[in-house]
Design a protein around this nucleic acid. Structure first.
Lengths: 191, 191, 191, 191
DNA sequence: GATGAATGAGCTTTCATTCAT
DNA sequence: TATGAATGAAAGCTCATTCAT
């Protein structure tokens, strides 16, 4: 019971303050649990964070992956990736933001590596999708990995903007902008 | 003299460890200055960081801006923005990364606002460029601000990837990928 | 069953790390028992330690005592004391070291007293032996209690040295050194 | 100024409670200094302890050594060593007790090694003195190093006893007991 | 202008102990 | 008998900040 309460509280606190500014005190308080309990379930702050990310994210990433292993057009595949990624962000904003933002700074090196693996895995997956499209001549000829990285960056920034600034925007608008740019930008229109 | 040494050291330390993990001790040490001197020139860590960003970044942003106020095609303008942004990142990686990455977390609220302004200002500028293009019917009809945000996100992620992982990539490749996606993705090819 | 496993584990852990650094966790783990079980059998760390020492040591001390209540020469008596003490140390090093080393520091006052009693009792016993010898004019005229303390100190240091540094020494050498010094040092050679 | 106050307070607290039970809080309090000040002057508890021992003890040991490099009889040399050691203990009880008692347990390994070196150095020195005596045929033929260790053990235990229990004993009595046993025990009486 | 010794609030972590089962 | 999740006081340590010089 406590373990779950802690993970929930941690997701909340970490995503609100970032890794460094989040304090074990606050997590314990938010979880309605004594501070010592954190250390009963997790070996430390770093490992709590890591668990949060590993358990939470990899599950979500798996979900995306499974939905994509179907026979649809490349355009449709990209559309779905964008949509899933948006879901991921907008529904699990807290968690997602952590993973994709805390990457550059503030983490203990130990934890950083672990999280970067998840990130890299996701990039690799998207790269493969693009690579296949390119092999079939359906995509403009650019470095697939960089394209994948670029697409992810675009999605994340737009979501961050949405979460921070503009609640006046509709979710559909985000989707439209990204999908438009990405598909038109990448897919070779055969005429 | 000290002031400059401190700012240089600060840029280094902040960009290496992020705002939170950077310590005044390390900055003082790297600047070859006593710790007290930091507080003689700056009122505290937050203000030192702010100064760094304000003085450093806004100058760079101004440079970009001036180069763009010319009469060139929209495609050319976007190309130049991307190139300047790449320069900004790759030449001043340290500083730039701070501004665009530390945004979400880890900063004192006081500082955060200030930096977000610079960020917003830049987005606004890019938005205007796109807006003009759209008004002239040259761009696909998407929310300009979101598109601007998306483009920035793409550029930054690709640069981050370049700085972190792939030194085996050529700068030209980054440019090619981004410009291809952005121009093809946004610009309406008139036939 | 558990009680014995715990006492064995405790002897091991306490003697390896000393009283303070020994943790109930480690004892429980080494005893293959849940942490709560320790508190079922013993009221706490202090009392577990105390039990260990009281049950273990006083038994050993009793053994020495019984073997000495015989009619042999003073020199022989001293020889036997030394030998027994050496056995005590070298065979039960773990336990013995605790009793004679942890005396000065690190123990809760409550426990300390109890252990010091055992220690004092042993000193008193040796003192009596020497006192008897002195009464019969066989020993040089020095304070018997101090002599007893000194002898014990000598034995213990030599054993500690043996256990720590020199496995290249033979047990016989320890015996020889101590007995030589003590007997020659104390016993009046009648001419 | 603070540094000295801290070292004095530390000597006091460490020798009263032992290394483990001594708390940085108490040391700071006793030194009339903020806790942070401890960490300004010393990198941590271990290093504070180490400094205390290294700076304090090695100086004392040096003093003993210098006084002995003279041309006196072996008996006189041993007498002086005992006397100095007694001084060392009785005047600097706090410090000395730490060094010779905390050796077996309770110290961080890092610190332990450092202190053991000082200890070993002292043993080595005493061993050399005895070795010389033996070479000249003046001592009974026993392992010199073990004898040195034994003598030190005897001195220390007697002093500990004196400091703990018997303030009713005179200092001269300690000296007498030890010197009697050691000289009679070791020195070959030529007739 | 510059220093660096000193500060103290706040952090992460440890661990003996409790208690419902 | 035995468990192990939960506790919370107390520890060691960090670091932005202050201030007398």
């Amino acid at each position: 019971m406590s373990r779950v309460k802690i993970l929930n509280a941690a997701a909340d606190v970490f995503s609100t303050h970032g890794y460094q500014r989040a304090s074990m005190d606050e997590i314990a308080m938010q979880a309605n649990v004594a501070k010592g309990t954190l250390y009963y379930h997790f070996s430390g702050k770093a490992q709590l964070f890591q668990t949060l990310v590993t358990e939470g994210m990899s599950e979500l990433v798996a979900k995306i992956r499974s939905d994509l292993n179907t026979d649809v057009t490349l355009e449709e595949q990209i559309k779905r990736i964008v949509q899933h990624h948006l879901d991921l962000y907008l529904d699990n904003g807290a968690l997602a933001r952590i993973v994709f933002y805390e990457l550059s700074n503030g983490l203990e090196d130990e934890v950083l590596e672990n999280i970067q693996q998840i990130h890299q895995e996701y990039i690799r997956f998207l790269t493969e999708v693009l690579e296949m499209g390119r092999a079939e001549g359906m995509l403009r000829s650019v470095n697939s990995r960089l394209a994948a990285v670029g697409i992810i960056g675009m999605i994340e920034h737009v979501c961050a903007e949405f979460l921070t600034e503009g609640e006046h925007l509709a979710r559909e608008q985000l989707e439209e902008v990204i999908i438009t740019i990405v598909t038109s930008g990448l897919i070779r229109k055969v005429e």
